[in-house]
Write a protein that binds this DNA or RNA. Structure first.
Length: 286
DNA sequence: AAGTAGCCCAACCGCAATTTA
DNA sequence: CTAAATTGCGGTTGGGCTACT
């Protein structure tokens, strides 16, 4: 007996999520917690299958996600863990807080594989390619049809071109590398590569250290512009609220949200949301 | 400026593992 | 114990974006 398909209903939406859908999903999970993915779409009014909701939350909306480029440290961890665990992306992701299995898998397929090959290391066995040649020649005969599209695209020459391109991109992005081409890290382990790519008008907030609660239950937040991380944190704009679920929903509806970004969470119940309109930036702590 | 090629990543799909009745 | 339901995982794809010609 086969299993019921996840999305058995005609009319369920597929493809990219809209801000409206994100709001509905966030609101529902904040109010009800993560449970019953199967029932969630119906209860929240989303025309998506539960699986799709789960994926959207896990990979994109979760408040504890660390977005932006992976640091050299994280990359090395992924390589080490892959050597031990193989393609068990969720296990690997569990060792890298704020990173998703999907993100790591994508990064592996687009960057690390290439990098290892360039270093003469087989990305599956983590051994020097010269040791693999014999085995590869044998395997090629039987595995031709299993080659993925990405693999097909990676012909010689293209790789060299790509490497040059990546070097250019790094240069353009102003990556801070030391003389050994290693990203510069600060003493506390924070790496410059950790900083997500933000537009100049976007704001970076370190919630863990930047806010404190006042006697009336509200919170104060210091906001500093991401383009000048070392400058003293002069507030740009802030409006803090603490709302119950239904009011939170109303709040989201009333806001003209241009961009929605989760930055941090203090604990499982407290989440931080930053919204931005043409004229103001609003943060919410629950 | 327009067309093309290739990269990247969000999201989908199918299957496996786990839980529930 | 078994079948059905649900959740989680890994492979793959599609389309937007950018660089190149």
């Amino acid at each position: 007996m086969g299993r019921q398909p996840c999305c058995d209903k005609v009319g369920l939406k597929k493809g990219p999520w809209t801000v409206e859908e994100d709001k509905k999903l966030i609101n529902f999970i904040l109010t009800n917690g993560q449970c019953c993915w199967r029932a969630l779409p119906k209860l929240s009014g989303l025309l998506r299958c539960g699986k799709s909701c789960r994926l959207r939350w896990i990979n994109y909306l979760r408040p504890d996600l660390k977005r932006g480029l992976l640091s050299e440290n994280e990359e090395q961890m992924i390589i080490d863990l892959h050597a031990q665990l193989g393609n068990r992306w969720s296990k690997i992701a569990s060792h890298l807080p704020g990173r998703t299995d999907n993100e790591i898998k994508n990064h592996w397929n687009t960057h690390i594989k290439k990098k290892l090959r360039k270093m003469g290391i087989d990305h599956m066995t983590h051994k020097p390619l010269s040791e693999q040649e014999g085995a590869q020649q044998q395997a090629q005969g039987t595995k031709k049809s299993l080659v993925s599209r990405d693999e097909k695209n990676r012909n010689q020459g293209q790789e060299d071109q790509q490497t040059r391109k990546e070097e250019d991109q790094q240069h353009q992005l102003g990556k801070h590398l030391d003389k050994n081409n290693t990203p510069i890290s600060t003493d506390d382990g924070f790496c410059i590569d950790d900083i997500p790519l933000l537009n100049p008008h976007e704001i970076f907030v370190d919630i863990s250290s930047a806010h404190h609660h006042t006697s009336d239950g509200n919170a104060n937040i210091n906001i500093s512009n991401s383009t000048s991380p070392s400058s003293s944190s002069s507030p740009t704009s802030s409006c803090i609220s603490s709302l119950p679920g239904d009011e939170f929903s109303k709040f989201l509806d009333e806001m003209e949200i241009v961009d929605l970004k989760w930055l941090s969470s203090d604990d499982s119940s407290g989440v931080t949301l930053i919204t931005k309109t043409e004229s103001s930036i609003t943060m919410l702590i629950r």
